[in-house]
């Protein structure tokens, strides 16, 4: 049993190291496919990052009555945070609101003069509420507009922003769907190309397989070395791609950071290094093994 296994592994390694033309063809195609899968992981990372940036740029604000005390507002916030749809809520006091307003309009003399004329702070304290998902804003708005809060809540600006939020929700859903379709499509094409290349390399070995059958080799003894060759090709293909991506993301990361709105490819690669390793070796080895097993079946029929 172990002797047969040892021989199958040695024969597989021998095939890998001696059958250079088919090994190189399989290795290059496997590396390209693994690279495509890794690129899809990057695409996924970039799209999640950009979509989350987009989603975070939209929120709902609840403005409190002039006479609502800070304690009441903070107590309100404590009641709001456990709501499952709420991701975060940031308290903006009246003073902070004024400060930001003045800073924003410091060049607009008309507004500065108007504030001086009023003499008091006309702005309201507020909570900027961020939902976990843009589709959850209606539920949050419903919670905020409860009768129980009518004493301290002056107004909720959800209705004003409803259209923008809905459009953004549709946009993010659309982008996610496109990314998914592109990923599945590219992955399918990549797997098909790799499978056919490996099938061709096995087709080239059909005479060899016939000889093996005629000298009395069992199917597992014939198939085993091809599977081992597939595993070795997968390992080397995965390793090549891993090293290539490491240097590529190291080079491109800082250079594309501003273009990608702050997404650093190298940081993403290093923070997900085990995921990349698992994907690259998993896809490489899986492809090698499955393609070899499927492609060789045809030639094992007696």
């Amino acid at each position: 049993m172990f002797l047969a296994l040892e021989r199958i592994i040695l024969l597989g390694w021998e095939k890998f190291s001696r059958d250079k033309s088919s090994t190189w063809a399989a290795l290059i195609v496997t590396a390209v496919v693994v690279f495509m899968f890794s690129s899809l992981l990057f695409l996924q990372g970039v799209s999640v990052f950009l979509l989350s940036r987009l989603e975070n740029s939209v929120d709902v604000s609840v403005y409190f009555a002039q006479d609502a005390s800070e304690e009441d507002i903070l107590a309100f916030k404590e009641r709001l945070l456990p709501v499952p749809e709420v991701k975060d809520a940031v308290y903006i006091s009246k003073d902070k609101a004024l400060e930001e307003f003045v800073a924003l309009h410091k060049n607009d003399q008309f507004i500065v003069d108007a504030l001086e004329t009023i003499g008091t702070n006309p702005l309201l304290a507020s909570l900027n509420i961020l939902a976990k998902d843009p589709g959850q804003y209606p539920k949050i708005a419903q919670f905020l507009e409860q009768e129980a809060f009518s004493g301290i809540v002056e107004r909720v600006d959800y209705k004003d922003r409803q259209n923008v939020i809905q459009r953004m929700e549709e946009l993010t859903k659309g982008i996610r769907l496109v990314v998914l379709i592109v990923s599945v499509g590219l992955a399918f094409i990549a797997v098909l190309v790799a499978f056919n290349t490996i099938r061709l390399t096995i087709y080239n070995s059909r005479d060899e397989i016939e000889v093996m059958r005629l000298v009395g080799a069992s199917n597992s003894f014939i198939q085993g070395p091809f599977v081992v060759q597939g595993i070795v090709v997968g390992v080397f293909g995965g390793l090549l791609t891993f090293l290539f991506l490491f240097f590529l993301s190291w080079f491109a990361g800082p250079r594309f950071e501003s273009f990608l709105s702050g997404f650093n490819l190298f940081e993403y690669f290093t923070s997900h290094v085990f995921l990349f390793l698992a994907l690259e070796f998993g896809v490489g080895i899986g492809l090698g093994v499955v393609s070899s097993v499927v492609a060789i079946q045809k030639y094992l029929r007696i």
Binding site: D19, E208, L214
Partner: peptide
């Protein structure tokens, strides 16, 4: 049985006109 055909073939040695050697060995 299909799985036992290799056992039959091991009882027979075959020589072909075109040799049928494994070229990578």
């Amino acid at each position: 049985e299909r799985a036992k055909i290799p056992n039959l073939r091991r009882k027979i040695g075959v020589v072909f006109q075109d040799y049928k050697l494994l070229s990578a060995k």
